[in-house]
Nucleic acid binder design. Structure first.
Lengths: 297, 297
DNA sequence: ACCTGAACACCGTTCAAGT
DNA sequence: ACCTGAACACCGTTCAAGT
């Protein structure tokens, strides 16, 4: 008995080798696979993951899953290249960027690098260790411009850079408070920048630290939505809009008990409602900094 | 070859049956177990989990792990009580409250209820389904007082209740944006409350929805810290203070590159620094509401 | 029909066997 | 000595065998 996901893998492999699908072409999404083969979304996702690990397809961040270029296909090749900690960390970041932190496994990292399952363990102590190194690596790539003079401009620049980093790597929001920053040395550069800005206010050390945490939390709270937005569609197989349409009947039932919610929601019937997280980020940032300014003046 | 964690289980079981440890007494913490048996913290935690699943010990939320009362010990007993969806969901909430969402497993739920591993599946479709039901159950228990007249008081009361709920059930922060609230009907009651408050401002529907998301994110961003705080000690085996002391040398090395951070941190040398998340929550809430008020006046 | 044990395809990690 | 396959103790979930 061949498991269903292997039948899907075999068929998509055939389409690629037969030239029905060419490098760069989108392969069916998990949602489409689920429909076409009449399987659960989890099974469809598994099939796509298997194809990805074989190097036949690649997750193109803002496009979907596409057929890999022929020369990148034998990913298990190039075994002469030495396995380094850096390559392990970078492979893990690639996986987390494309598929989320939940899809990151030590075995998956090894497969992506074409090495034995245990080989990464020569370079990282554990999965938790690897995740800290991933965070350190992306914080190390954070770019902060020339230091503005005014405290508020300094803080804004720093927090915006943190938000931009979370946009690029939404899995950062799943790491938690990083309350022990010395384990992620490159996070210190960010903290130093913001604390330096806040220090311009001459508040007591405790309040200064607190405000740094509050601003970090503001980014975190909104960034949590980023990862879910990126993967929610795959999980339910529906876009927010489709889902809203489908729930219209349920909404009618709920309307009597939730009049304000229902009234507001119906006003989105034509235009739709999509969350502008960037605007919310700016609104929250401005509000908090205004609040600080009012407190100290 | 007996796995190390089983040796630990056997020894602690002996201490309980021999009366060295009595109901209500604290058993060694994961940290203490790790030290006493010279094993990794993961192994120690595993031993305690096994004892918990046997019903010999219980996680007492703000105390630690204690010996269970004799009569509650044969937890696998009382099999005559029918397994219901409600009991499955409640057992899962208990586990998540005591040990975090990461420690929640379908098999663990079944073991806690003394039923076969597959029995819970007769009442929930999947683990994801169970988690949604858990969220719905705790949102259903959320208490909102009489409706204040002023819009701002209404919003404050609602958001504070949401924060209180996250304090009680920190795993709520791991659920993500819950951007499809109809799947968690009881969350709608909260949204309705806050939207009703915000509607008092007469803003356009889009901004009203946005502000609801911003306030929700504010709670989420800070609540993320709650779960980690609760479990960070177990994971590293050190309190924040112990850890800070231990890192003093590392700090000295980093001080030249991070002068502001180092200067602020040394000022905590005697008093220590502990995050007052409740104060930060209030500060952020006030700032955001002030910002809204200023925008609309 | 209802319930559940066995099985499958995963995990992270340990450890000893291979080179 | 360095590397890695086999093994262990888990997962969530499917499915067929048991009652």
């Amino acid at each position: 008995m061949i498991p269903p996901y292997q039948r899907i893998v075999a068929e998509i492999t055939r389409r690629i080798t037969d030239g029905e699908l060419n490098p760069g072409d989108r392969v069916p999404s998990a949602r489409q696979v689920a429909k076409e083969w009449d399987v659960a979304l989890a099974t469809a996702a598994k099939a796509l993951t298997a194809l990805r690990q074989e190097g036949l397809v690649e997750a193109e961040p803002r496009v979907g899953t596409v057929v890999a270029a022929a020369r990148s296909r034998p990913r298990a090749a190039a075994p002469e290249r030495e396995l380094t900690r850096d390559r392990v960390v970078r492979a893990a970041i690639d996986i987390a960027d494309a598929e989320g932190l939940a899809a990151l496994s030590m075995r998956g990292v090894a497969a992506r690098l074409g090495v034995a399952a245990m080989s990464p363990y020569r370079h990282v102590a554990s999965k938790g260790d690897l995740v800290l190194m991933m965070a350190d690596a992306v914080f190390g790539g954070m770019t902060l411009p020339a230091r503005p003079d005014h405290w508020r401009a300094r803080v804004e620049v720093g927090v915006r850079a943190l938000w931009a980093l979370h946009r690029e790597h939404p899995w950062l929001a799943q790491l938690g408070p990083l309350s022990r920053p010395l384990l992620v040395p490159n996070l210190l550069a960010y903290s130093e920048w913001v604390l330096d800005g806040l220090a311009g206010l001459g508040l007591d050390p405790r309040t200064t630290f607190d405000l740094n945490v509050l601003l970090y939390s503001h980014v975190l709270g909104l960034a949590v939505h980023l990862e879910r937005e990126a993967h929610a569609e795959g999980a339910t197989g529906l876009s927010t809009e489709q889902w809203m349409n489908g729930q219209a009947r349920a909404l009618d039932r709920l309307a009597p008990a939730h009049p304000t919610f229902a009234r507001l929601l119906t006003s989105f019937a034509e235009t739709g409602y999509d969350l502008d997280l960037d605007a919310l980020f700016e609104l929250g940032l401005r509000s908090v900094l205004d609040g600080i300014e009012r407190r100290t003046s």
